[in-house]
């Protein structure tokens, strides 16, 4: 395992982190409207939300990547400058994250006692105020452990983006492996991914226990 392989594969680490952060941020934001659709009391909205979630979750990320990267240009070649490798990658990660995050938000919403809606109503608060000032902060807190677990898995899912030509960790591992005709670069990539996830997991646990302490107080 020469130093060249280690430094070569390391070229992609920053991009891996960027892909994960932007993909997750996009998903965390888009997840809110998707969740609102999914829990709506109006049936057509609820069904739209549900169909969207099922469809997006039903197709593997690798297929989404190929479709988002190659699909739009199929209809208008000039879209190629809009859907660059990097943007298509972030869009695919964001799309898939959005539905997973929507489901996480929904699960957290269910964990909040319905009595709080009634109590707030009794206190004369509007539905919007209740949602934004009473329910949302709690949902966010409850959703933290599941969201961080998801964000961690996204670090690894970002490896698929190499297929559409984004120069991240797995991309470098693949090219170096082809040139050297050896599997070593993948061992190196594995080490880097673990090195990324373990501290991230530790930070996530800290965040979770901090939040929990705040709630208890």
């Amino acid at each position: 395992m020469s130093g060249e392989v280690w430094s070569g594969v390391a070229n992609g680490i920053l991009t891996t982190v960027q892909l994960t952060v932007f993909g997750f941020a996009l998903g965390a934001v888009l997840g809110v409207p998707v969740m609102l659709l999914r829990v709506s009391t109006w049936r057509p909205a609820r069904w739209t939300g549900r169909a969207f979630i099922e469809l997006v979750r039903g197709v593997p990320l690798i297929v989404w990547l190929f479709l988002i990267y190659n699909g739009p240009t199929q209809f208008d070649p000039s879209l190629g400058t809009v859907f660059t490798s990097w943007r298509s990658g972030v869009a695919a990660l964001g799309l898939v994250s959005a539905v997973y995050m929507a489901e996480i938000y929904r699960g957290s919403l269910r964990a909040i006692n319905a009595g709080q809606w009634e109590a707030s109503q009794a206190l004369g608060m509007s539905r919007f105020d209740t949602a934004s000032r009473i329910i949302a902060p709690q949902v966010t807190r409850v959703a933290v452990p599941a969201s961080t677990t998801y964000a961690l898995s996204l670090i690894k899912d970002s490896s698929l983006v190499s297929a559409i030509g984004v120069f991240e960790t797995t991309y470098y591992a693949t090219t170096i492996s082809s040139t050297l005709s050896s599997a070593t670069p993948f061992v190196v990539a594995g080490v880097y991914y673990i090195a990324l996830t373990i501290p991230a997991a530790w930070a996530a646990r800290r965040l979770d226990s901090n939040l929990r302490r705040k709630v208890m107080r």
Binding site: K156, S162, A173, A189, G190, Y193, I194
Partner: peptide, 11 residues
Amino acid sequence: RGTPALVMLQL
């Protein structure tokens, strides 16, 4: 959990 499936397959 830390190793991507893609990398695990190669390994």
